[in-house]
């Protein structure tokens, strides 16, 4: 790990101010992904700002009938929260599908959103990766791309976002709240947090330098059933190959794009009376593949109707 200086943030305002003023600084909360990447020297911040003790861990009802989840609430606490379990079960299911008990106890809501891809070329510093080293190329394009994107990829990057939690947030129409160094508070759709890779896959979110996620806000749950389904190589503690979150008529797909993928074509088809198989076929008509990830297209085509049936309470 390369040397860095370390600061215990005394307030949210002080944290974003430091982040804006000190070059190559990063926030750290749980640290489960960032420290892993720092040990591999894929991440090498000069300064860490510990925001983990900031009073942003609360989970409270909103006046609109939704739920506001502080950015420092741990994954475990969110998954176990009575309101989340009863009104947003897709979020509990998504969170407990990710990581291990130890990781979920440390990982935070904000940090989960900011975690980075598990693409093997991103992790292997002897291989080209435009995300890790802009301009070096993409090893995955013609390489080990079994877990690469089938939606929204570019010739520069076909990596996927690894979060399970974020897929449920996308289906629930969650919003992200942030504080920027200027003191501005922003609120925007969780699906607008992450970018598609385009020519600059190293820039992963729409956050400005120093901007800190302070909360995730859930609107009242949509009418209808909810479920999260994840397919992976082993039964537990493994990244997904494909996942889907259903919340009412909303469908979000995981492990298929550089960001949580709202299947808007499928949603529109469902809303107009198409079968779930027809609806997901409409979405997949624009899927691409690089060879080894071709199976994801069939996998999603089979997974989504099963999940929709489960959310609707049907026999499967």
């Amino acid at each position: 790990m390369r040397p860095f200086t370390f600061e215990r943030a005394t307030s949210t305002q002080a944290a974003v101010k430091s982040a804006a003023e000190i070059p190559n600084s990063k926030f750290i909360a749980g640290g489960t992904n960032l420290l892993d990447l720092m040990k591999l020297e894929i991440e090498h911040p000069a300064h860490l700002i510990d925001v983990g003790r900031l009073p942003l861990a609360g989970i409270e009802d909103t006046s609109e009938g939704g739920l506001r989840i502080g950015a420092m609430a741990t994954n475990s606490h969110v998954a176990a929260h009575a309101q989340v379990r009863s009104r947003y079960p897709v979020l509990t299911q998504a969170i407990v599908a990710g990581g291990s008990g130890q990781l979920r106890n440390k990982a935070t809501t904000g940090g989960n959103l900011m975690q980075r891809t598990r693409c093997v070329y991103f992790y292997d510093s002897t291989k080209p990766c435009n995300k890790r080293q802009p301009g070096s190329g993409c090893g995955a394009l013609e390489g080990l791309n079994r877990n690469s994107a089938i939606f929204g990829a570019s010739h520069a990057c076909i990596a996927t976002h690894p979060s399970d939690m974020a897929i449920a947030l996308a289906a629930l129409d969650a919003k992200v709240e942030t504080l920027s160094p200027s003191g501005q508070v922003r609120s925007f759709a969780a699906t607008e947090l992450h970018r598609l890779p385009g020519e600059t896959p190293d820039i992963e979110t729409h956050l400005i330098p120093g901007e800190l996620i302070t909360a995730v806000v859930l609107p009242p749950p949509p009418k209808g059933g909810q479920v999260y389904r994840k397919v992976r190589d082993r039964a537990s503690y493994a990244a997904g190959l494909a996942s889907v979150a259903i919340a009412g008529g909303n469908v979000a797909l995981g492990c298929v794009a550089h960001k949580p993928w709202r299947a808007e074509k499928a949603e529109a088809a469902l809303a107009s009376g198409s079968s779930s198989a027809e609806a997901i076929a409409a979405e997949l008509s624009e899927a691409s593949n690089n060879g080894r990830n071709r199976f994801k297209i069939d996998l999603i085509a089979r997974l989504v109707p099963v999940a929709i049936a489960q959310a609707n309470g049907s026999q499967i």
């Binding site: 640290g31 420290l35 892993d36 130890q102 990781l103 106890n105 440390k106």
Partner: peptide, 8 residues
Amino acid sequence: RINSCLSL
């Protein structure tokens, strides 16, 4: 419980 290797 946490992983002490992934915490400073």
